[in-house]
Amino acid sequence: MNHSFTWAALSLLSLSLACQSVPSQQNAPMSEFRDAEAIGLPVYGMSCPKCANNITHKLTDLVGVFDVEVDMERGFVTAKAAPGFVPTRDEFVEAITAAGFTVPDSADAGD
């Protein structure tokens, strides 16, 4: 028990030090847009697939939205809707917030 305890403690401390220098991913930013068929905005905090799937549920609850693309790598979400039913930016942000995520201010996107 003494040896296993010592090795376990040393392993955890080593892992702790090793992970100090792990950088986070850098992703090419995408610009927000809204046209006659879709709206796309950057979204932050999509840390896991199951969490990000919340976004799909919330956006498809909006009237007219029939497809949602979640790009976790770049942090960008696109909602496609029937003509005349494309959500406004405010509606989009409200749905994202209700799912527990953040739409960064335009100035912050891609930082």
Partner: peptide
């Protein structure tokens, strides 16, 4: 209650 949520990047939180 999640009283703090700071999302700083695409997957960073």
């Amino acid at each position: 209650w999640r009283f703090r949520s700071q999302n700083t990047g695409p997957v960073d939180t």
